[in-house]
């Protein structure tokens, strides 16, 4: 028995799959790959897979995390080759790390997420830069947020940890996880600009979670 965490990307149309659909794709892909993924015990055995966090429908990502358990130790290169051969186009497993810190679940390690907001085609970038800087620099950013029962007002300013412009857009780091969480689509609603979002990394206290999987590292 061994535990691993894999980092994968979701691009293009497959970004529109729901959390459960994505889970199903991996279940079926692992079966096709014949990799030795462990099953739970009981009447209705299922593969032991868990995501760090659900990905919003429509969101592309370069850094989703999935934890898997296997019956025996696996070779990383072999794993990547086998799984990438049998997953649908649009998904790609980028890395696999053995998880030697067994106490913490991925979701409990999650603190922050990094996003890239890419300018839409034909957008005036200079203008956009000014508008975005202006909007993000405000001392408070009030948003209507829908909860199950009602609509509340929330200041999301403190959820935005850092942001930097690049050539093609802006990289933003925000709180993510069970403690404090900013849904990136809420921020986009606030910005009201032609931007496409890509999640880049899921991050723990001080570093990307994927880099903190093994004690030795």
């Amino acid at each position: 028995m061994a535990s691993y965490v894999m980092e994968f990307s979701v691009r293009g149309p497959l970004a529109y799959l729901s959390h459960l659909e994505l889970m199903k794709v991996f279940r079926q892909s692992f079966r096709r790959s014949t990799l030795p993924i462990s099953f739970s015990e009981g009447f209705n055995p299922h593969m032991k897979l868990s995501f760090a966090i659900a990905k919003g429908v429509g969101l592309e990502s370069e850094g989703e995390l999935l934890e898997i358990e296997t019956d025996q130790e696996i070779d990383v290169g072999d794993f990547l080759e086998k799984i990438n051969k049998v997953i649908p186009d649009g998904l790609k497993v980028k890395t696999l790390k053995e998880k030697t810190i067994s106490t913490k679940s991925l979701s409990s390690m999650l603190r922050k997420a990094k996003y890239l907001l890419v300018y839409g085609d034909g957008v005036n970038r200079d203008e956009y830069r000014v508008i975005i800087a202006d909007k993000l620099d405000k001392s408070e950013i009030l948003m209507e947020v829908k909860t199950k029962k009602s609509i509340g007002i929330k200041d999301i300013k403190e959820y935005i940890l850092d942001w930097n412009f690049t050539d093609t857009g802006v990289i933003i780091e925000v709180y993510a996880g069970s403690d404090k969480n900013l849904r990136i689509d809420n921020l986009l609603k606030y910005l009201e600009l032609d931007l496409k979002t890509i999640r880049l990394k899921l991050i723990g206290d001080d570093a990307p979670i994927i880099d903190k999987m093994s004690k030795e590292e």
């Binding site: 149309p13 497959l14 529109y16 729901s18 892909s29 429908v57 429509g58 997953i87 649908p88």
Partner: peptide
């Protein structure tokens, strides 16, 4: 939306 995207295995 998964109904309308194609690209299945």
């Amino acid at each position: 939306p998964g109904r309308y995207i194609g690209g299945e295995w």
